[in-house]
């Protein structure tokens, strides 16, 4: 069934509607087998719909999905059991933890070694089988429930594991355990991981291939900043957006007052002192909120809070060391008005 040269997923001219509203439009997307791909973007942008389509829970109203080179339709989908999704708010069946984790194996008709597999799956997500297997669904904390739901997917040894905002409602230690579990799954089984998250730094620690989903479209890569309108004309050639603390972002000719600008984090220069001598139109003061290493590169992503506007900036690890930048410090972000592209 597998086409050796074809990607695992190929989405072509895909569209999904909610009523009259255009929810998702993807002209083309390839996802290779064994990769980890992340999707990031604001709420309502279409991430969850995309993940439901990739997990075959929803079918697009238009376009085609090829899985392993085979066209998938709602009535003919031999791959349904190879793909599983952990939703943002997973539902646990009103049964014990053991029965929840074992359910997927039982519906596949497996009878041998279920207990051992359940114990292994629970250990994989950091839950002690001895104290958890007999617990009821309502005797778990939010993080424990999330991990039981993940264990019930991992036990299936899926070809594709899809996670929708897996760390939204869990504490830091659960987020770390989830990361370790899915990384182990990928290493051992070559499982393809597809993950959506708001948590850019967490997602960045899992994969470097992160796409931004905005207003139903894949608009680029994750670290690109989205700056929403409204824009007001300030001079003949410039428009401005006033931030909550009074700072101003200047841009060149947006399509309309409500346009959204995209800013590449590599186009932002960071300074620890106020940069009086630079000619760029935008100089924003901000507090460093987070720093993270970009996988497979010598760069870091720095998250700044500039008067309520979050900006992601890319700096080299050397520059971060030389400037001695730490979270909590005030820095200045400098970029040209012409660096803002329009969505």
């Amino acid at each position: 069934m597998r086409g050796s040269d074809s990607p695992l997923y190929r989405l072509e001219d895909l569209a999904f509607f909610y009523g009259e509203r255009f929810e998702l439009h993807i002209p083309k997307l390839d996802i290779p087998e064994g990769c980890t791909i992340g999707f990031i973007g604001p709420n309502g942008g279409g991430k969850s719909t995309l993940l439901k389509i990739l997990s075959f829970l929803e079918h697009p109203h238009q376009g085609t999905i090829l899985f392993s080179g085979v066209k998938v339709t709602p009535d003919a989908n031999p791959f349904r059991r190879q793909v599983t999704i952990l939703p943002q708010e997973p539902y646990l069946l009103k049964r014990t933890v053991f029965e929840n984790v074992a359910y997927g194996l039982k519906v596949r008709g497996e009878k041998q070694g279920i207990r051992k597999k359940v114990h292994e799956a629970l250990e994989q997500v950091g839950l002690m089988p001895g104290s958890f297997t007999s617990r009821s669904w309502h005797e778990l904390s939010g993080g424990e429930a999330q991990r039981v739901a993940l264990a019930s997917r991992l036990i299936l040894r899926p070809r594709v594991l899809i996670l929708d905002e897996p760390t939204t409602s869990v504490d830091q230690s659960s987020a770390l355990l989830i990361k370790e579990s899915i990384n182990a799954c990928r290493r051992k089984l070559n499982t393809t991981l597809i993950i959506s998250s708001h948590d850019h730094l967490w997602l960045n620690s899992v994969t470097h291939d992160i796409r931004k989903v905005y207003q139903g479209r894949i608009v680029g890569f994750a670290t690109e900043n989205l700056i929403f309108g409204p824009w007001k004309k300030s001079t003949d050639s410039l428009y401005e957006k006033i931030l909550p603390d009074g700072q101003v972002i200047h841009a060149v000719s947006p399509q309309d007052a409500g346009a959204t600008a995209i800013l590449d984090p590599s186009d932002i220069v960071i300074s620890t002192a106020h940069p009086d001598h630079l000619s760029a139109q935008n100089t924003l003061s901000g507090i460093v909120t987070q720093l993270s290493i970009e996988p497979f590169s010598d760069t870091m992503i720095m998250e700044l809070n500039c008067g309520g506007q979050t900006l992601l900036c890319r700096i080299t690890s050397n520059a971060a060391r030389e400037l001695n930048i730490l979270p909590g410090e005030r820095v200045w972000a400098v970029f040209k008005a012409s660096s803002l592209r329009w969505y």
Binding site: L57, R80, R81, T84, P87, Y91, G104, V107, R153
Partner: peptide, 19 residues
């Protein structure tokens, strides 16, 4: 979420109805 959960865990139509 019950239906989506059961489908994503691999249940067939009759198994979804019973569950």
């Amino acid at each position: 979420r019950v239906r989506f959960t059961l489908i994503s865990l691999g249940a067939k139509r009759s198994q979804i109805a019973l569950a």
